[in-house]
Design a binder for these strands. Structure first.
Length: 859
RNA sequence: GCCGAGGUGGCGGAAUUGGUAGACGCGCUGGAUUCAGGAUCCAGUGGCCAUUAUGGUUGUGCGGGUUCGAGUCCCGCCCUCGGCACCA
């Protein structure tokens, strides 16, 4: 009868999920006197399909959350949906559905898939950024930013597909600069757009990175570089023979006497006026078209050919009065600095390459110590002494830089400035499926914000999804409105917000969801800042900077009490899987069985094995549902943790899953069926244990230590391995000793092991843990129990292995009492054959002793 | 290109602070059980050389260095992955 019993994961998981739901087990506990712990996962875009990245993220989170609950804390562990965005709009065009019901259906599906995994989310706090009761408050926050002067309008370029007559996202533009849908050449178009003034917070965003001690250094470094503070000098260059001038920013004012040409970015606003009616006009316009149409990354490559065109205009050097030609070039970017540079070919690699190509003079003005103007190797990028620099000749360039800046400043020619690489955040999107920007354009009053009591500005439903233009503008009712000020006919803004706006404050809405405000301050004070945030490394800069920016603004407005939203951050790696690319057939193969032993296709073509992020386009996707179906959620959860360190990329291997399933099966077999051996008062019976029984207890208590510290350190892969090792010790003990004739002492050891294992397993495989819990006579769930504490005395090994090295090479191993001293080990080592042979009668010059571990004899 | 991360057996990975390289799992090999397949169990498993239970030697992307001792620290290369502002 026992023979036929099986680990029926389907019945076990269904039973416990039902039990947890019936008892509302995961509702956020708010007991007074317990510490609060806010655990946050990055919420998903509801594609309708849970993927392995989600499984990984939410399993990590569930382990952390459940652990903290068992440690006696009040834990906030919410989930929601980043539900606005491009895919729903694309689906609307493709399937002629409306994004709203489509998104709701997707959410329902994913909700079910998440429940199947047994994650301990408090669904009472679910948020959906695309629902009016959420985006109403996104709009409300926009208005607060507006009042604070932190929203503005500027011109910015967008990708415009002339054939689709629509704006394209960067990812919709292919590498060759064509539209992914119709292959037409994509143009750049300038539009007035809304911006959040992130640059106003650049310095604080940078400074406060120092406080984020519990963030990965890699993320902090990436953010510092993203913000990109640089100190330099900004000054105007007048255009010869005109009233025009343009601003230039440089970090190398010491090289200003070496300027031999000026460069404007092709998209610089001055370009049109400079060339209007000039002979160069046609050539310049053609060049601008060519650069802006191309791949913008390729444009930034240092080895990309430097291309440029002379405008025919000249600028006057503010110090020497010389006339300097003004060029356009592909290597100057409009979005950094002022979009214009003073070019110093002698001391800048890119300027040098450009000057060489177009035969522009090169004038060295910084010389290395002891070098002459004629002898210096160019371009010279290092420090040195000023030359060709008028009154500054002979000065070392560093102090010269300071002096020149001071002199220019006092002469009224420009000023020292700090420049940030960070740009203002363009939040306008010419799309339907986003949060409408709550602004009205009145012919008389101008830009008028929608009053708070008119919120939400709802997305219209009478729209057509044709793939042309912004669907919102096709609504007969949306755009026309009246001015809230004067009542005259006016027009609504049809742009919607970037979805990063929605995700910049969702963590505040989780803490409380009042109907009449965005959030409740008292609840924010209870939970914020987030104690632990976990999500993909791909969000290291953008999302995490935007959310920090929002929090700082809301702090300044008195709406939240903390300046940083996320106290501790952990970034998980992606989930990848192997696939084989056949270059001859231009085709992916996803199963090794399709290929022969040499990796050739049925058509005989060679393939290349590539490990890539799971994606639909390759077809190397494994759905968490299929794993739940054939192995169970507990197996899926343990496997995704076991596969590798959470911060690293994880390669999914189908064969690996069965190994983890086998482990859970063994665990079940070991601890569930022999439940008759359970002794409720096992603590009293742990006396007179023989060595095998003591070994089981030792391993058990060592495992408590390992898993506790493993969870604290996010070493979840080794925590699962520790559970496996434990089972490898407990199972033989159970099989040999726990039968009808088991002694009281053995039953006590078994009982302790069963109870503690259930608790240790609980965060990882909660269904099986509760099954063991029930089988050993407990009521309720391990979720309600207390995390075990290791007994250090029991965990301590009685004997240790000491390695004996001669000159750093291992020659022997000694098994000795723990706590043995150096003298004893040296004496024992001197008797060992291999050690004696290795010493070859040479005197021991020095001995290195690492207590309990290693003895190294140096001759 | 710029910024960030990583490279350890046939494979995924382990190795708190420089101290036994390869835990745990997959795969593979041999054996047990089974009508069969599967499942399960036992033993072995980095390479090379030898073989008497055993031993020697080599080994953490490549080339140098520091150290009694380096996967770990330093210098220089190569390769792979993530982000680069309208994917989220």
């Amino acid at each position: 009868m026992e023979q036929r019993a099986r680990y029926d994961f389907k019945a076990i998981e269904a039973r416990w999920q039902q039990d947890w739901a019936a008892r509302d087990l995961f509702r956020t506990r708010l007991d007074a006197g317990r510490p609060s712990f806010y655990y946050l996962d990055m919420f998903p875009y509801p594609s309708g399909h849970l993927h392995m990245g989600h499984l990984r993220n939410y399993t990590i989170g569930d382990v952390i959350s459940r652990y903290h609950v068992m440690r006696g804390e009040n834990v906030l562990h919410p989930m929601g949906w980043d539900a606005f965005g491009l895919p729903a709009e694309n689906a609307a065009i493709k399937h002629q559905t409306h994004p709203d019901p489509w998104t709701r259906r997707c959410i329902e599906q994913m909700h079910e898939q998440l429940n199947m995994l047994g994650i301990s989310f408090d669904w009472d706090r679910e948020v959906n950024t695309s629902s009016p009761d959420y985006y109403r408050w996104t709009q409300w926050l926009f208005l607060r930013f507006f009042e604070a002067g932190l929203v503005g309008r500027q011109e910015a370029a967008i990708n415009w597909c002339p054939s689709c007559a629509t704006v394209l996202a960067n990812e919709q533009v292919l590498k060759d600069g064509t539209c992914e849908r119709c292959s037409a050449l994509v143009a750049k178009k300038r539009l007035e757009q809304w911006f959040y003034k992130t640059t106003a917070y650049a310095q604080r965003l940078l400074d406060d990175i120092d406080q984020l001690d519990d963030w990965p250094d890699a993320v902090r470094t990436m953010q510092r570089n993203w913000i990109g503070r640089s100190e330099g000098f900004q000054f105007a260059w007048p255009v010869v023979g005109s009233e025009l001038s343009f601003e230039v920013f440089t970090t190398r004012i010491d090289t200003v006497y070496g300027v031999t040409f000026m460069v404007l970015a092709p998209e610089h606003p001055l370009v049109e006026q400079l060339v209007a009616g000039q002979p160069q006009e046609a050539a310049v316009k053609a060049f601008v078209q060519q650069v802006l149409g191309g791949d913008q990354f390729a444009r930034q490559a240092a080895d990309a050919p430097k291309e440029g065109v002379f405008t025919g205009a000249f600028a006057r050097h503010p110090l020497t009065g010389a006339e300097v030609p003004i060029w356009l070039a592909n290597y100057v970017m409009m979005d950094y600095g002022t979009g214009a540079i003073m070019a110093v070919p002698a001391h800048d690699e890119r300027d040098f390459a450009f000057a060489t190509k177009y035969q522009i003079p090169v004038v060295p003005v910084i010389l290395p110590e002891g070098e002459t103007v004629d002898g210096v190797g160019l371009p010279y990028l290092g420090d040195g002494v000023q030359a060709n620099s008028g009154p500054y000749n002979g000065l070392p360039n560093r102090p010269a830089m300071v002096k020149m800046a001071e002199d220019l400043e006092s002469a009224g020619t420009g000023q020292r400035t700090v420049n940030f690489r960070l740009r203002d955040w363009c939040l306008s999107r010419q799309r339907y499926w986003g949060c409408p920007i709550p602004v009205i354009y009145c012919p008389a009053c101008g830009v008028v914000p929608v009053p708070d009591d008119h919120l939400p500005v709802l997305l219209p439903t009478d729209v057509a999804f044709t793939g042309e233009g912004n669907p919102i503008a096709s609504s007969a009712t949306f755009r026309q409105t009246t001015c809230p000020h004067c009542g005259a006919a006016a027009q609504r803004e049809t742009d919607t917000m970037d979805t990063f706006v929605d995700s910049s404050w969702y963590f505040l809405r989780y803490a409380s969801q009042p109907a009449d405000s965005a959030f409740d301050r008292a609840e924010l004070d209870r939970w914020m800042p987030v104690a632990q945030y976990v999500g993909g490394i791909e969000h290291a800069t953008m999302h995490l900077i935007y959310a920090r920016f929002f929090t700082k603004v809301l702090y300044d407005l008195g709406l939240v009490g903390c300046q940083e939203p996320f106290a501790r951050l952990f970034t998980q790696g992606m989930v990848t899987k192997e696939a084989w690319w056949c270059d001859a057939e231009k085709k992916w193969y996803t199963a090794a069985e399709q290929l022969d032993a040499a990796g050739r296709t049925p058509q005989g073509h060679a393939t290349e094995r590539i490990v890539k992020k799971m994606s639909k386009s390759i077809g190397n996707v494994v759905a968490p549902e299929s794993i739940c179906d054939s192995y169970g959620a507990d197996t899926g959860r343990c496997y995704i943790l076991f596969v590798g360190p959470p911060e690293a990329e994880a390669e999914w291997q189908d064969e690996g899953v069965s190994g983890v399933h086998r482990f859970l099966t063994r665990l079940w077999r070991c601890l569930v069926p022999p439940a008759g051996a359970w002794l409720p008062d096992w603590r009293a019976q742990l006396t007179d244990l023989d060595e095998p029984a003591r070994a089981v207890r030792r391993k058990l208590h060592q495992t408590i230590e390992r898993i506790t510290s493993g969870i604290e350190r996010f070493a979840l892969n080794t925590s699962v391995a520790a559970l496996m090792e434990l089972v490898n010790v407990v199972l033989p003990f159970v099989e040999q000793r726990i039968g009808s004739s088991a002694t009281l002492a053995d039953r006590a050891v078994y009982s302790e092991a069963a109870e503690v294992t259930a608790l240790l397993l609980s965060p990882f495989a909660p269904h099986l843990a509760d099954e063991i819990w029930a089988a050993t006579g407990h009521h309720g769930s391990t979720y309600e129990a207390t995390w075990p504490v290791a007994d250090a005395t029991v965990a301590k090994a009685a004997r240790v292995t000491v390695v004996v090295q001669v000159n750093g090479k291992v020659r022997a191993r000694l098994e000795v009492e723990a706590g043995v001293d150096e003298a004893a080990v040296r004496a024992a080592a001197a008797e060992l054959g291999p050690v004696v042979a290795a010493l070859a009668e040479q005197p021991v010059r020095k001995a290195i002793w690492v207590p309990g571990k290693l003895l190294n004899l140096v001759t």
